[in-house]
Computed example of a mutant assay.
Amino acid sequence: MKLKYLLFGMALVSLTSFSNDNLDTKYIKATKKTAAIFQTSDGEKLIAKSDCVGCHKLDKKLIGPSYLDIAKKYPSNEKNIAYLSGKIIKGGSGVWGTIPMSAHASLKKNDANSMAKYILSLKK
């Protein structure tokens, strides 16, 4: 019985030691310099609220390509923003594989443009 409690305690301690929370930066008072770091764009907010996260991740391929892979493939210009916002609204297939992207017909053109601009801004 004591061995079970010992193993449970060791497992609990080891699991909590792998936490990614950085407590030093979590409670920094926002200044003009740090406020710019934590601002999110309209496109990022729209993506977070939509069903995009079910198929796309920032840096890993899920069902569809990662946002970073999209940003690497398309230069950030008005032509590509219009193309990608059209793909977001109409859907499509064949560019990144055989699995089609579903259409988002209820999405406004301005919102799709904001999303595309955000994705293309991720290029490093």
Rank of each mutant, 00 (worst) to 15 (best):
V13Y: 09
L3Q: 04
L68E: 05
D69M: 11
N80P: 01
P75N: 08
K87F: 05
M10E: 00
L6A: 09
I70T: 11
S66I: 07
I37C: 01
L6G: 00
I28W: 12
K49P: 00
K87T: 07
K79V: 09
S14E: 02
Y118V: 03
K73N: 01
G97L: 13
L46G: 06
K61L: 10
S41M: 02
N77D: 15
Q39G: 01
K2F: 02
I70K: 05
N80D: 01
D21K: 15
D51C: 10
Y83A: 11
F18I: 12
K2V: 01
L6H: 03
W96A: 04
S93E: 12
K33S: 08
I81K: 06
T16L: 14
G9S: 14
D21I: 15
G9N: 06
K79I: 04
K109V: 12
L12F: 14
S93F: 04
S93G: 04
L6P: 01
F18K: 08
L15C: 13
V53N: 14
D24C: 01
I47T: 12
L58V: 13
S14Y: 09
S76C: 03
C52S: 09
A112P: 02
D24A: 14
K72E: 08
K45Q: 11
F8R: 06
M10K: 00
A116M: 03
G86C: 02
H104N: 15
F8H: 03
Y27A: 09
M1G: 13
A36S: 11
A36D: 10
S121F: 00
M1R: 03
C52L: 09
M115R: 02
M1T: 01
A112E: 05
A103Y: 07
F8T: 10
I119V: 15
D51Y: 09
N22G: 05
G97H: 14
N80R: 02
I88H: 05
